[in-house]
């Protein structure tokens, strides 16, 4: 298991928002190819903040951070889009574009990568069908429920077949059955090779999946259960 390539590595990284005291301090962790981690911790502990550093929305304010083997803190700005394209993110607040339809939102990463529509049209439709929104493809986010938006966000995160999937409370707005389905999907995608980090405070779900758990508290990450010797 240790043989897998490094996907994410933090060394004594810290994150402070502007003048505020550090939200995260002394983060050291490694995520390798093929690994699946839950990220738990009380509300406000910094789960979202840690994911933000990984998906290159916030630069760590100290320490070192490597992404797909590249030093992400030293990488020139021009190198960032290529790294971001290898990550699929389900944002806690969905972050769908309001003037786009569900279809267009899901297609966005492909369009941004300059892929011809003929090459992703079927994938987008298929994904939307899979999350049960086959009949809402032309709907704007404003007309969708919270759970439907979450599923559109999920489809957008997966459409480019990313090497790393980050999900921030992906089951927060869906019913338990759909929540379980989504978790099973992450497990399947993980089997197909994607590294996965799911931030959640749904401990019941965490237990039912049985994957290693990272716990954030007091600005630090600790491994809490059966990490299988990784990292």
């Amino acid at each position: 298991m240790n043989a897998g390539k490094e996907i994410v590595r933090f060394e004594k990284a810290g994150l402070a928002y502007e003048e505020a005291p550090e939200t995260l301090s002394d983060i050291s962790m490694t995520l390798r190819e093929g690994e699946f981690r839950f990220l738990t911790g009380p509300s406000g502990a910094g789960k979202t903040s840690l994911l933000k550093m990984i998906y290159l929305a916030h630069k760590p304010t100290r320490g070192r951070f490597f992404l797909f083997g590249e030093d992400a803190m030293e990488a020139p700005r021009e190198a960032l889009p290529a790294l971001r394209r290898r990550i699929g993110v389900v944002f806690q607040e969905f972050r769908l574009l309001d003037h786009f339809t569900a279809y267009e939102n899901v297609a966005l990463p492909m369009k941004v990568a300059g892929v011809n529509q003929n090459q992703y049209r079927e994938d987008v439709s298929e994904l939307l069908n899979w999350v049960g929104l086959g009949d809402r493809m032309d709907a704007k986010p404003a007309t969708l429920s919270g759970g439907e938006k979450q599923r559109v966000a999920l489809a957008r995160a997966l459409v480019s077949k990313p090497d790393l999937i980050l999900a921030d409370e992906p089951t927060g707005n869906v019913d338990p059955a759909m929540g379980e389905r989504i978790m099973k999907l992450f497990v399947e995608l993980n089997k197909l090779g994607a590294a996965v980090i799911v931030a959640t405070h749904d401990l019941h779900l965490v237990q039912s999946i049985g994957k290693p758990v990272l716990r954030i508290a007091n600005g630090k990450v600790t491994r809490s259960a059966g990490a299988g010797g990784a990292g």
Binding site: A107, Q117, R121, E122, S125, G134, D138
Partner: peptide, 26 residues
């Protein structure tokens, strides 16, 4: 598959009417 393809196409074509010089999506 054909049905979803058609769907995808209509989803992509619809907003094109808004942008005079754009085809494909909004």
């Amino acid at each position: 598959a054909e049905e979803t393809k058609k769907r995808g196409k209509s989803a992509g074509d619809k907003p094109a009417r808004r942008g005079l010089f754009r085809r494909g999506t909004a």
